[in-house]
Amino acid sequence: MSEVKNILLCGVGGQGTILASKILSTALVTAGYDVKMSEIHGMSQRGGSVVTQVRYGENVYSPIIGQGSADIVVSFEAMEALRYLGGLKKDGSVVVNNYQMPTATTLSGQEQYPADSIERLQKLAKTYVLDAAKIATELGNSKSMNVVLLGALVKRMGLESLDWDAALTACMKPQFVELNKKALAAGMAAVA
């Protein structure tokens, strides 16, 4: 089972983690991999923490992974990477968006948001930091932040040769495809 690769994507409801996972899974299936993707939604659309897991290889059984199993953690929000870091293999890597979203408890002052989340990550694991919101905004639409992060993931997992144009076309409305092709490329370049 060692050939199965495990990817964990996390973020906050509304950031587009599920769409990014869908694009990723689509490209992997087209490339001939067996793929399983698991997501938890429902209450998470009310601003809660969101996590999806994508597994691919020749034969994938479980749709979910446990502790210390992910080859890579891609976090759309700085603190969420710390929340799910336990899922990462000891020698795995982290791609993290330099983007902080307060929570209901930090907004009201009940808890402190850990402002040093990224510094903490860098001490614990091989960490690639990018400002996906800024990159996406410069490209013309901040909402393509999720595809910028997907691009970074693609680069770090060595999946550049997959048919991303087709996957983007299959997963989004035609008017957004061109922008997101650029977003994907920008994400790749950001962690090159």
């Binding site: 603190m79 710390l82 336990g86 929570t103 850990p114 903490r120």
Partner: peptide, 13 residues
């Protein structure tokens, strides 16, 4: 898995 102090992570209900 990586050992670290997860208590700094704020809840996100």
């Amino acid at each position: 898995s990586i050992e670290y102090d997860a208590s700094v992570v704020a809840n996100r209900p």
